[in-house]
Amino acid sequence: MTITVEDRPHALLELLWLREAHSLNPDGEDLPPHLVRTPVPAATAVYQATRARWSRGWSGVWDEVLAHAGTEPDRALVDNVFSAEASDPDRARLLRQLTGPSVSDQFGAEVFDDATYQEWDRLGFESHVASRPTVLANSPERRSVAVLADAWRRGLTKVVTVPCVGTHVRQIGPHALLVTEEVRGDRAAYENALRSFAPAV
C-alpha cells in the first residue's frame, strides 16, 4: 500500500492566502473554510475592480489547482521533461502539464512578492515543521492504518491537507481526498473522512 500525503500544497496555500489577504469574496460550491492563521491584509492593496475580478475568478482557479493537487505525478511525463531529445518548447509544455495550473498566471506573480505573504508563508512552514510527529507510530496514517487500507482498496492514493478551520472534507477526483489539518489531526474525524472516500464508478 502506498499513500501520498501532501501537507504543504504550495499552490493551494497561495490561493488561500490571496483570498484572505485581499478580502476576496468568491462564490462557489464546497469552498474551503477560512485559514486557521488569518493573514494580515496584503501590504500592496489592489483596486476594487481588481478585487472584484479576482473574486469572480478565484473559485474556478481553486477547482483547477485542486484537481491537479489530487493527481499523482506521471513518471513518463517526468522522464520526458528531462529527456535530452525534448525541444525547449516541448519541455516547457510538458513541465506545465507536470506542475499544473499556475496561480501566478491568473493573478500575477508580483502578488506573491508581497512582504506579508513572505512572512505568512515562513511562519506557516515553521509551524508545519514543528508540528510533524517525531515518531512514525504517531503519524495520523499509522494510527488509522486499518481504515486507511480500506480506503486504499477503494482507490485512495493521496491525501491533501490544508490549514483551514473546521472539518472540511472533499473528494478530489477518483484517487484523492482533501481534508483540513484539524481533520487529519483528530483520529475519529480522520477515520470518518477516510470512510467517506468513494470508489470511482
Rank of each mutant, 00 (worst) to 15 (best):
V129K: 12
N192A: 15
D88E: 10
T157R: 15
V147T: 15
L95Q: 09
D79Y: 04
S104F: 07
R96F: 06
A67S: 15
P89K: 02
D90I: 05
W58V: 10
M1R: 12
L94S: 04
V201W: 06
L13Q: 06
P9G: 06
L156P: 06
V179D: 01
F82A: 06
S196L: 08
S23L: 10
S55R: 04
S196F: 07
P174N: 02
L24F: 04
G155H: 01
Q106I: 07
E182A: 11
A92V: 12
T71S: 12
A92W: 07
F197W: 01
Q118M: 12
T44W: 04
E126I: 12
G108C: 05
S139A: 14
L123W: 11
E119D: 12
D113N: 13
Y47I: 13
N25H: 13
G70W: 00
A188V: 13
P33W: 01
L77M: 09
V201A: 13
D88W: 04
D186G: 11
I172A: 01
S127K: 12
T161K: 00
R154Q: 10
F82R: 10
N138H: 08
V5Y: 06
R51K: 14
V65A: 00
L15N: 04
Y117K: 00
L94A: 06
L12Y: 02
H10T: 15
V103L: 05
T71Y: 00
T38D: 10
E29A: 15
P33Q: 06
